[in-house]
């Protein structure tokens, strides 16, 4: 439904051909700009970077200070109070929530990736009546607000007796998700068709084409889908709010909200515990980003996903 002017995939492809050497006197390079401009540029960039990093620095530092120093000026964790983490760990079942988040995240990401790849292959390889219409429908579902289907979907899981279990948090992903179908189809389309036709002549079945040939070939794209969905699941609050009552089943964001309500607002303003919990929920995402940085950047540049 929404269209971009750029051919998908061009974002990655053409960065590789950016000119490196080849001095061109007519093109204004940075070295030819006036000195004051270059200084201004560096100052602006570094200032912006500092502004974006300061909240992180404050978060980590304040989480390591004693209660009465949380709001103290400065960015150093002095006095140093790493016990906040032990305290948070004992006060709430953080380990359980971490574990739940990992299990739900892996299930959600694996389900979305596998099912979307299967469906995307169908759209990419086969020619059949109604293909463009169906694919348009896939794209159209991306525009549908979550709120429109939220209530009946809840009623379905409720009827199945699966409210207050973690199943509704990931099982909906078993049916493919428009965003990843779109992404993976692009990658399947980039594979040479003769390759598959040769395998067909050799007697390979269609599921074999998918599993043995196509699937391994688009592994980088599968990782993009996996890390995006894992992140989406890890940071989601609304589904756990709707479906989970039992605290033992909570994922981290849902648990973090409880920590805020119990220790921050409601309790004795124990912000150091709330902050320690926030750091614990954030660190795995930061690690994931550094492990899969390339995939995040590619995924955004090719599809323009928000977040």
């Amino acid at each position: 439904m929404t269209t971009t002017s750029q051919p998908v995939g061009s974002g990655i492809a053409s960065t590789a051909v950016a000119p490196v050497a080849a001095p061109r006197p007519e093109a204004r390079e940075d070295g030819r700009r006036p000195r004051w401009q270059r200084i201004l540029f560096v100052v602006a960039l570094v200032a912006a970077a500092v502004i974006f990093m300061l909240p992180f620095v404050w978060l980590v530092s304040a989480s390591l200070r004693p209660r009465e120093y949380v709001f103290a000026p400065g960015f150093l964790p002095t006095p140093f109070a790493p016990d906040n983490y032990a305290e948070a760990w004992q006060a709430m079942p953080l380990l359980t929530w971490l574990f739940n988040s990992v299990v739900v995240g892996v299930a959600a990401a694996a389900a979305a990736t596998l099912s979307s790849a299967w469906v995307a292959f169908g759209f990419a390889y086969f020619r059949f009546p109604g293909r463009n219409l169906l694919f348009g429908l896939v794209l159209a579902t991306m525009m549908l607000p979550f709120a429109v289907t939220m209530i009946p979907t809840y009623l379905i899981w409720n009827r199945l007796g699966l409210v207050d279990t973690q199943v509704p948090l990931w099982a909906g992903n078993l049916f493919g998700s428009a965003f990843y179908i779109f992404l993976l189809r692009q990658f399947f389309l980039s594979l040479p068709r003769e390759y598959f036709e040769a395998a067909r002549v050799d007697g390979a079945s269609y599921p074999q084409l998918f599993w043995k040939l196509a699937f391994p070939l688009i592994r980088p794209a599968l990782l993009v889908a996996f890390v995006f969905e894992f992140k989406a699941s890890w940071t989601d609050l609304i589904k756990p709010l709707i479906y989970l009552r039992n605290e033992q089943l909570y994922t981290l964001p849902r648990g973090l909200k409880v920590i805020l309500d119990r220790f921050g607002y409601g309790g004795e303003q124990q912000w150091e515990i709330v902050l320690a919990g926030s750091v614990i929920a954030t660190v795995p995402m930061i690690i994931l980003f550094f492990l899969a940085q390339r995939h995040f950047v590619e995924g955004i540049a090719t599809t323009g996903r928000k977040g």
Binding site: F52, M53, P55, P253, L256, V274, F296
Partner: peptide, 19 residues
């Protein structure tokens, strides 16, 4: 640097900015 805030869980962002 500019992307890391996007990785931060929204609940943590809310808590952080509340403070």
């Amino acid at each position: 640097v500019f992307y890391l805030p996007v990785m931060t869980p929204a609940v943590a962002v809310g808590i952080l900015f509340l403070l």
